[in-house]
Design a protein around this nucleic acid. Sequence first.
DNA 1: GACGCTTTAGGACAACCGTCCTATAGATTT
DNA 2: AAATCTATAGGACGGTTGTCCTAAAGCGTC
Lengths: 198, 198
Amino acid sequence: MLAASTRDQIITEADTLFYESGFEATSFSDIASAVGISRGNFYYHFKSKDEILDAVIARRLVSTREMLERWEAETTDPRERIMSFFRILLVNRTKIMAFGCPVGTLCAELAKLDHMARGRAEDILALFRDWLEGQFRALGHGEDEANDFALHVLMRSQGLAILASAFRDADYVRKEVDDLADWLDRLPAPGGQTSTRR
Amino acid sequence: MLAASTRDQIITEADTLFYESGFEATSFSDIASAVGISRGNFYYHFKSKDEILDAVIARRLVSTREMLERWEAETTDPRERIMSFFRILLVNRTKIMAFGCPVGTLCAELAKLDHMARGRAEDILALFRDWLEGQFRALGHGEDEANDFALHVLMRSQGLAILASAFRDADYVRKEVDDLADWLDRLPAPGGQTSTRR
DNA sequence: GACGCTTTAGGACAACCGTCCTATAGATTT
DNA sequence: AAATCTATAGGACGGTTGTCCTAAAGCGTC
């Protein structure tokens, strides 16, 4: 196996550090020592901290797209695809309980910092939204309805993540994911009124 | 009217700065210049940044409790009380779209920082949860059901805040609050199965 | 072996961080 | 008026931040 390039290692370590400690709280030294290189060498690969953030977000965009494509390849049933989305909430519940949602918390932090990369981080969220909307459309729902449902799923995932990390309750995550699956099962037939609960 | 003491002013400015810029990103100098005092004078009132955070959280706890008591004094109808909770989401939508939920984002940041005050911040969220649970119990719901409903409302508020600030869509906030009011209207009668959607 | 390119280490740099000390101005009491 | 207490300003402190420079090590190619 090819060893990961230093640049890739930097992005990898920065990614987890940004997630687990926050962007602002993570220093150049933190990343450097995590990778095992000197602080000086850093400047050769990235000219600023913002450049690392850009690279991290770019990689997250790519890996998210890949994950969504994998879900699409696994099954043609949109319901099952949406269930894949629900399942990662369960799979990642330990990390979510400790650090929240990687996407949601990054968006929240960059919004407060009024950071340039804010919009790019929100693109990751939009990626999920558009993909979910596509699945609901594939289920036969109209554009507005599909968009509402997509936002509903996203909203509940984000709320779930915040409460899970605030109350650190693994059972709560399980319960909420069950609830989401139940909501999906009981979805009104396509063409009905645009209500997300019922 | 009595002029606010310097100490109070510090807490006030720190409160809004922590909300709008984040705790980590807010420096002593930021607070000092917002209050209009010298950085040195600071140490007389607070010995550390953590002490200010403690004071800010303590004040938020008090003001939250007062707000909940006000809502209880305004009406005896639990449904109307819960509607008061929904309404602040609408009233504060501009700030929410810019900086998210003050409580949720603080909890998320302190979790990543692994900060001592993390639990105290989460107490504010617990305050809302317990109050909401009380209202649902007053509506006749059992302990488990009332707790589920309270967590459901909290979850949706947090998810709403994240999506509102990520997509900066005022209409979305209005729609979600309408949806919440609708959910409350269609709540299953007390004693039924513990389902949060239906 | 000499050259050129890529990659690295180490440290300089000014700015800022949270913390802490001290001198003093202002107010209150004696 | 003197003494005392509260509140403030200003700056020192060691450490860390993000940024940037320079010297040199590694390495493939002629």
